[in-house]
Amino acid sequence: MVESVSSWSRNGLRDFLLQRLSAVVIAAYIVTLVFYFACHPALQYYDWESLYTASWMRIFSVLTLLSLIIHAWIGMWTVLTDYIKWILLRGLVQAVILLILSICFIWGIMILWSV
């Protein structure tokens, strides 16, 4: 089997499953937020803050953040592999994307932990 060093799990089938699993987690989070917004038409800061101090929401948010990073990495990896055939350039763009995603992950954790 050919392994690709830069794919998320170095295994196409596992990447495929992870991308689907992460998609379901993100989708569940979106549905939760839409439901929340529907229940709070004129949202005030203290409602919003108390949502994000609740333990379940913090756990759910971190889980979603992690899923999002994995999902976006696998997704972007697929797109880059399709369109950039020059391996050096692809590696470079992959590195930039990895950097952006890592920053987003750490930043997201920082936001969630500052509430």
Binding site: L68, G108, I111
Partner: peptide
């Protein structure tokens, strides 16, 4: 999907300001 990836920093910024 590409657009969502590109908008991540923007969304995180709005999220940060909101909290």
């Amino acid at each position: 999907g590409l657009l969502l990836f590109l908008s991540l920093p923007f969304v995180l910024y709005l999220f940060q300001q909101s909290l």
